[in-house]
């Protein structure tokens, strides 16, 4: 079989590739996404740079300056032990944000992989997995996490294990339903007809077309996990004192609510802002990732 030579082209491939703006570039074209990213970025930067920015250690007590209002020395005032609230909020961000971002990694990866497997292969494995997912989803997320942390033991380890055990179900469910749609499309049949292995079809054809859903969800999920961490801290099951944590700060400030309102309010602000920022990111990404 003799093939005609490919016509040499004056236009380089780059031109046609340039017409398709990559997902990252389109994301940065979305105002919603950029706004969200700015908020999240600012707060993350503040938390990361806490040792540089803050003038006091998070646990540095000063018995002569307790429960003071905002001043030049203490921008957000001090708590009942004379600790600088601004420094503590920054240091708390380091712990809480790290847990929020790190704890969703395992659910994201495990849940997604399981989702494309059960969606693609189906059968008894699929039925079993999805019934297990139903059982776990039947419990409210917070109730389950709080109960598990209570059993495993408070602290970072307990939080990671509890989130890992419960949070993958949502990813599995989202990715599985998306896989069921993609699996029946002709190009997957064509790929299989061409003799490609299941592993390759999953990696090259199913995964890239289903993962955007998981990436959008992970944004909201970080917020959920963060809220769970903070709630656990509030209940005394999360990060153990004296390590600062937004939840335990809110809880500790509660006794002074009538006289020193800011003690409980201020740690809530970064939580709200992070939630807003990540939601904006998710919104922007949803628009961008919708298949053309």
């Amino acid at each position: 079989m003799k093939l005609p030579a490919a016509t040499p082209s004056a236009q380089p491939i780059a031109e046609s590739a340039g017409r398709h703006r990559s997902i990252a570039r389109r994301a940065f074209g979305s105002r919603t996404f950029v706004a969200g990213l700015c908020i999240v970025g600012c707060i993350t930067m503040l938390a990361v740079l806490a040792p540089v920015i803050s003038r006091y250690g998070p646990n540095q007590q000063n018995p002569f300056h307790t429960l003071e209002g905002p001043s030049a020395a203490h921008w957000l005032g001090t708590d009942d032990l004379g600790r600088d609230v601004w420094s503590r909020v920054l240091y708390a961000g380091r712990t809480d944000l790290f847990i929020g971002f790190a704890a969703v990694l395992f659910p994201l990866i495990f849940g997604t992989l399981l989702g494309i497997m059960v969606g693609y292969f189906g059968g008894r494995f699929d039925t079993f997995t999805m019934r297990l997912v139903d059982v776990i989803i039947a419990f409210p997320f917070f109730v389950l996490v709080i109960a598990l942390v209570f059993i495993i033991g408070p602290g970072i380890r307990g939080i990671f294990i509890a989130i890992a055990l419960t949070d993958w179900v949502v990813y599995t469910r989202i990715i599985r339903s998306q896989t069921l749609v993609v699996r029946e499309l002709d190009w997957v049949a064509a790929a299989r007809a061409g003799g490609l292995s299941h592993a390759r079809v999953l990696r090259r054809h199913i995964l890239p077309n289903t993962i955007p859903q998981a990436i959008v969800y992970v944004m909201s999920d970080i917020v959920y996990v963060l809220l769970a961490v903070v709630t656990l801290g509030y209940l005394g099951l999360g990060i153990q004192p004296p390590t600062p944590d937004w939840g335990s700060m809110i809880s500790e400030g509660q006794s002074f609510l009538t006289t020193n309102l800011w003690l409980s309010t201020i740690p809530g602000v970064p939580i709200v802002l992070i939630g807003l920022g990540l939601s904006l990111c998710a919104d922007g990404l949803t628009d961008v990732l919708r298949p053309p």
Partner: peptide
Amino acid sequence: AMVFQDPSSGLNPVMRVGAQVAEAPRTV
């Protein structure tokens, strides 16, 4: 081998077409 009916669902939307044509020669 098989050619499908609908050109809109017959190709993977997130892969360059050259890569899709090269896939079977590369792996099979």
